[in-house]
Write a protein that binds this DNA or RNA. Structure first.
Lengths: 145, 145
DNA sequence: CTATTTTAAGAGTAAATAGTCTGATTTATC
DNA sequence: GATAAATCAGACTATTTACTCTTAAAATAG
């Protein structure tokens, strides 16, 4: 079970943060990313292609090729990545799956979940990838392998 | 995509709340539940059997048989149901899937997610099924079909 | 121009999740 | 006891998600 986000989305989040830890413009190969993050090679390749098509990354073939952020890390949030890979369906569905659940015909946790949903959204937008990459470089943080 | 909870778990939540809307001890058939909640018959049958094995429901075969809550609705929370069907893994995993993420080696949203996780837990335990069934009976609430 | 290193693309496979079917068993009623 | 109405059990199928493989194409360096 991969809670909240799909596997591809989790991998995308990790990969983009990893790229943000590099100097701006520096390119990183799939090989390096999959080794550092322990993600299956060809699977991550697909995901990075997807992020490239969606305009979040740029790619270059050949030796010294690889992937880099298409825009400054400061302008990217986790939400951009989630939006690109999983979409924003989680902002809409009833948490218990009631088909009729809606604003004027709510289920009994509709309002609590609405608040939580907002908090999740806030978690995804309140900090940018540059700040997060800064964290990850510190020894007390996890992720880079 | 069935956010946060699996399909079987969503169906279980719906079914248990539906049962809590009945008079204590009254038995309800799979047929009635699937008609009211629009859930596939045989699939819900499996889920109810599971909840019965886990001790949340009691079942009776034969005409006038069906399912009922094994204990007073006041003593059941959504968390009991989630625990029985999906387990509590969502309280443990890193939201971005970082393998190394933990208390003393956190990812950059570790703390925000920890708070959110607690709020989700609170949403699941702060009200019991009796209260929620009470809500659902009111015309402005959704669920019973 | 050739060899090498990288991504691109698309088909294919595997595993997990969701949902179905059939037949047996239990219980109540006539 | 026979019949009917319900759950129980387990095998089966379908769909979605996760992951792999192969070949092509682009870029660099010699």
């Amino acid at each position: 079970m991969s809670l909240l986000f799909s596997r591809p989305c989790e991998y995308a989040l990790q990969a983009v943060i990893y790229l943000a830890m590099k100097k701006e413009g520096e390119r990183t190969s799939i090989r390096e990313l999959t080794a550092a993050l322990r993600i299956p090679y060809h699977f991550l390749a697909k995901i990075l292609q997807d992020l490239t098509r969606k305009g979040l990354l740029s790619s270059l073939k050949g030796p010294a090729g690889g992937f880099a952020l298409e825009m400054p890390a400061k302008e990217i949030t986790l939400f951009h990545i989630v939006e690109a890979i999983d979409g924003v369906e989680f902002t809409q569905r009833c948490v218990m799956g009631f088909q009729e659940c809606s604003g004027n015909h709510p289920c009994s946790v509709h309002d609590s979940w609405a608040e939580l949903r907002d908090s999740i959204y806030r978690m995804l937008v309140e900090r940018n990838i540059e700040e997060m990459a800064g964290d990850m470089k510190k020894p007390e943080y996890a992720g880079a392998g």
